[in-house]
Design a protein around this nucleic acid. Structure first.
Lengths: 346, 346
DNA sequence: AATTATTTTGCAAGCGCTTTAACTAGTTCC
DNA sequence: GGAACTAGTTAAAGCGCTTGCAAAATAATT
């Protein structure tokens, strides 16, 4: 490692004190403009780059934002983790902040990990995602006074913290209406077990639209499964398709499930969308590549991440500013898995 | 932010000096085992967590590994960025190191960014990926003496640094042989323009197998395009499919192109694989979801990332240890886009 | 019991920067 | 001409930890 120059080296070289050089570099008003320019030039000439660790220790700000990555089954990485992380990184990068990714060990508690991340002073703030209905992380962060933003929200508390969520409630209601208009009466909901808020919201959206409709012919078959268990998923998919009175329209809580559903339906001779309409959620890349293309909602991941980065930066800068809550309207992407309800066989 | 305890607080509480406590926490041999236990217990009781910034400044090691994310066209994030980053994070996390993601601004130079990342002392080492034939980053890192590992390698220099690469050369030769055995004689290579080494290696693999074969009936149509320009890609795909003597077997340098090729071929009435065999590379998730499923090579991204993390940690620990060079054999995934050569129309 | 070896602990000097409070010049004002 | 300012600069005290070296305490040796 080649020896790097320190602030004192630069100060000595300039015949100034370290204090002045530090302030000059930071563009403090109180330093003469001429001096600032002289310092900047010398810094460039000497190739001086401030040591960020020392800056962090002295100033109390690290210039890092944290994000925890729970380690689940291998290869089961969130399909838009790349997009999300990439947009976050860019959003922070624009303001000179970098993203610190921290792995939560498989057997470890996410809360504990989060706590150590913040009390060890590695980050200026964090973004938490995959919020659960009664997520304890939010209370933890609040009690620690650490700037944070949530991607998603609590089920019954949307106050007192900053969050950004995609409006699954509206989306699923919209999906229901679309399919109802197309003549469907027998509905299915293919969901997951986890207590994630987004699941609850989406389900609620469907339920509300369903209840509000009031058509007595309406039926709803609700099947859910564990997300990380392939066998359970297959069983759930089979379950929702079973019997002569199976649904003609199914909403899947996420595209991954929708894809499995399509495959399974097709393999048992059903035509999508002639016999069965399917609408997913997320718009993962594969949704465009299956045949027929999956009709789904685009979750606008990159855009959400960009906004989250901006929101977190704002909180770090002004920790007591009013909280910011944003609901992103997901965009319906019409492809080929929805259609008019099949004629009832005689 | 609740006040956090410092090492001195803990030392005072224990009636020991900070030095002893520091060493005890670090499990130094010279501290009595009994004292170590006492300190550990007190630390737990008081909820003491060392400040990592201070540790970094004092010890010279940050506990961070860096990875640069060049910001290209929005949404064009590398399809396995998520998988890669996730596996890297886990690999580092196992040893208490975290991954720092730094965004290279769209208009900025990656070299300069990398240089500032390392001279500012934010990281103990870096992993660089998407190595180009004459990548300047490697020389830069070497000259700075920073521990690093490359995902990929230089075209003409595989010595003097640590790298891990997927063996695209062998893979493409294998793909050629497979298709030749199936009767194909008119080959196509759909590639990209960028001077990335992996492209060169894969192309070379095909060329070598092609030249070694020597069958005079063999033809090879080579078309390439810019990777980030959808129009150029479409044109390239059209080009490789044009004319009555179009190839019956095409190797695509990456799955993304293969997918576009399938779509285009099908839309002009060609049957895959009856009229046209296609083999890709990478095994992105969508490869399994298109119809027919794409025959391709699995690049083993997660496994590579895990190994890279391990390699970098080894270099950080022993910067002058011998370099480690690893070639990962990609696995051929046989799905539905390859088949026997079509009978020549009379 | 005196001496030497060994184990345990502490002093103090940083790591490279930020920041408070104070200090020095140069102006202005009455 | 000295008080009262203003602008520009600096001394010095950390930020919370690590670590080389030395001291103190304890154990082993003769």
């Amino acid at each position: 490692m080649t020896k790097t120059r320190t602030l004192s080296d630069l100060a000595r070289h300039l015949g100034l004190s370290p204090a002045t050089v530090s302030r000059a570099l930071a563009q403090h008003e109180q330093i003469a403009v001429k001096t600032r320019a002289r310092v900047a030039q010398a810094a460039k000439d000497l190739g001086y780059v401030p040591n960020r660790t020392a800056q962090a220790l002295a100033s109390g700000r690290t210039g890092f934002a944290g994000f925890l990555l729970p380690m689940r089954g291998r290869g089961l990485a969130d399909p838009f983790l790349g997009e999300f992380v990439s947009a976050l990184t860019e959003g922070f990068g624009a303001k000179g902040v970098e993203l610190l990714l921290s792995a939560v060990p498989r057997d470890g508690s996410e809360d504990r990990h989060l706590e150590s991340l913040i009390t060890s002073g590695r980050v200026d703030g964090v973004v938490v995602s995959r919020i659960e209905c009664n997520d304890t992380r939010i209370a933890l962060l609040l009690s620690r006074g650490v700037p944070f933003v949530a991607h998603g929200r609590l089920a019954h508390d949307e106050e007192g913290y900053s969050w950004l969520d995609t409006d699954g409630e509206v989306a699923f209601a919209q999906a229901f209406d679309l399919l109802y208009q197309a003549g469907h009466r027998r509905f299915g909901l293919l969901s997951i077990d986890d207590p994630l808020t987004f699941r609850e919201k989406r389900e609620a959206g469907l339920r509300k639209a369903y209840d509000a409709n009031g058509d007595p012919a309406l039926t709803l078959r609700h099947v859910s499964c564990s997300r990380y268990d392939a066998q359970a998923r297959a069983k759930a998919v089979a379950g929702i398709l079973a019997g002569p009175d199976r649904p003609t329209a199914i909403l899947a809580i996420a595209d991954g499930l929708a894809l499995e559903l399509i495959a399974q339906a097709q393999s048992q001779g059903l035509s999508v969308p002639d016999d069965l309409s399917i609408i997913g959620f997320d718009n993962i890349p594969s949704a465009a590549h299956v045949t027929p293309g999956l009709t789904t909602f685009d979750a606008c991941i990159a855009d959400s991440a960009t906004q989250l980065a901006e929101m977190l930066l704002a909180r770090i800068k002004a920790p007591s500013s009013p909280h910011d809550q944003r609901l992103v309207r997901p965009q319906l992407v019409l492809r080929g898995t929805h259609g008019v309800a099949p004629q009832r066989a005689a």
